[in-house]
Amino acid sequence: QVYKGLDIITNKASPQEQRLCRHHMISFVDPLVSNYTVVDFRDRAGPLISFHAADIFARDKIPIVVGGTNYYIEALLWKVLVDTKVLPWGSGEGGAPCAGPTTLSHPGGADSLRIGREVLHGGPLERPRPLSWTLGSLQVFEETGIPHSEILQQQQQEEGGGPLGGPLKYPHSCILWLHADQAALDERLEKRVDDMLAAGLLEELRDFHRRYNREKVAENRQDYQHGIFQSIGFKEFHEYLVSEGNCSPETSALLLRKGIQALKQVTKRYARRQNKWVRNRFLKRPGPNVPPVYGLEVSDLLRWEEDVLKPALEIVESFIQGREPPAEPVRMECDVHENKRSHRVCEVCDRVIIGDREWA
């Protein structure tokens, strides 16, 4: 959503929604930029939250960081990155509603804070890139002379550090995790794709392809691994877009159905990955630097006010006023004997799985 264009396929907040409260970090990166990183996101989003004049905290507002790619949220909330341009890209393949966490922060002791809302959106949605992780670590070592793993370990050992890295930048934070029954969520995601099509998705894709991608395809230099071009929805319609007008109507219709089905499948898959990220990163790795996570059930949208809005407001108001929230945070058992560095080979998918939790 940080990129200009593809508003429908990336599920950006509508103009009507953006008029309800001020939104940040939307539609400001040129779509031809392919090297926008998590460091760029952190360096731009962080100052928006700070206490400097005109920033969110300085105006007695509460920043709401909305996922998005959870890796980008972690980079904003924790001291987890080394300042170098070649760093790991975030993981994930698209935005699934009600599947990722929403984080609210306030500067502490803020009885005078109004419950004003401002929204910062997560960074670009990227595929996992193991090679980039390796290159990033090599870059860190070249520039500092210190192994990347040693720097990360030092961050974890700082006062307030823990399993997720260094100390929280905003210690008075909490996480609202909107989650739904998987069947209900899958049905909602499929309907969302249908609604996108009705809202003009194909026209948006055709226009974007014509302006930014057709020439690259003709020269065989299209790239669906970087920047906005790897967003869920664009690459899934590649065959349809490049063949439209050059094949029979029957073939075009078949490719269109194939693209729609692929979009629905990959969106549902990403929703599962977001939930897994929340469980593994925030719930199964307890530590002094992990904010409380409050679960909000959104399976039945007819009960939105009772199950989501009312308890969320009670939690946030209690948090601001320094009271114990009426709801209990979500807790999950963790294995203190877990081996995070174990190596196992999955013969089915021919992959090396690192860590007991990932193998389980």
Rank of each mutant, 00 (worst) to 15 (best):
Y240H: 08
E215K: 12
L76M: 09
R19V: 08
E219M: 13
I354H: 15
L256T: 04
S231D: 03
V217G: 09
G122Q: 01
R357K: 08
S91R: 12
D207E: 12
C98V: 14
I56W: 01
R269M: 08
L152Q: 10
G295I: 03
Q157F: 09
A53V: 07
G67N: 10
T267Q: 08
H226Y: 06
K61I: 14
D195V: 11
R341T: 15
L77A: 02
K61E: 09
L197Q: 06
G92P: 00
C21M: 04
K340E: 11
R210H: 13
T251V: 10
V140T: 06
E150I: 02
L20F: 12
L138V: 13
G322F: 04
L197V: 14
I146M: 06
T69P: 04
E190W: 10
Q274L: 09
L241W: 05
E74D: 11
E333K: 12
H343W: 12
L76R: 05
D335C: 05
V33C: 08
L32K: 15
Q18I: 10
S342Y: 03
V80E: 10
K4Q: 08
L178R: 01
S132D: 14
L81E: 01
P167R: 09
D207A: 13
R273Y: 08
V65Y: 01
G355R: 01
I320A: 00
S34A: 11
L178Y: 01
E74Q: 11
Y270P: 00
N213S: 11
I151T: 02
I228S: 04
K12F: 05
G123I: 05
K268I: 14
K264I: 09
R210Q: 13
V266W: 01
L131C: 02
V308H: 01
K12E: 05
K85N: 11
M25A: 02
H148C: 07
D194S: 08
E219N: 10
R59S: 10
E236F: 05
